[in-house]
Amino acid sequence: MNTLLTFLAEFNSSFVKAFACLGAGIAVGIAGLGPAIGQGFAAGKAAEATGRQPEAMRQIRSVMLLGQAMSETTGIYALLIAIFLIFVVK
């Protein structure tokens, strides 16, 4: 109870900014996991496919890069939210 009262007494606009920055960090940190796993999976499958069919390497590489660029999207959205949190929240 005491801590809550202290918190409420000290709450001001700089707290909002601090929590916005914290939220931005957490957003990028958690959202970085998903695309990383997805891109690693795509790269692993591409390596497998190259091992099975080395002559198709160029095509496999371009398909892999395209797929990875697509799966990056969710991470990019999180980055946008983080940037908005940092620069828009005053």
Binding site: T73, I76, Y77, L80
Partner: peptide, 16 residues
């Protein structure tokens, strides 16, 4: 929006 924001986010992240 998905087309635009994907492009925007990628280039902006590079710039930042």
């Amino acid at each position: 929006f998905s087309l635009g924001l994907r492009l925007f986010g990628n280039i902006l992240s590079g710039t930042v």
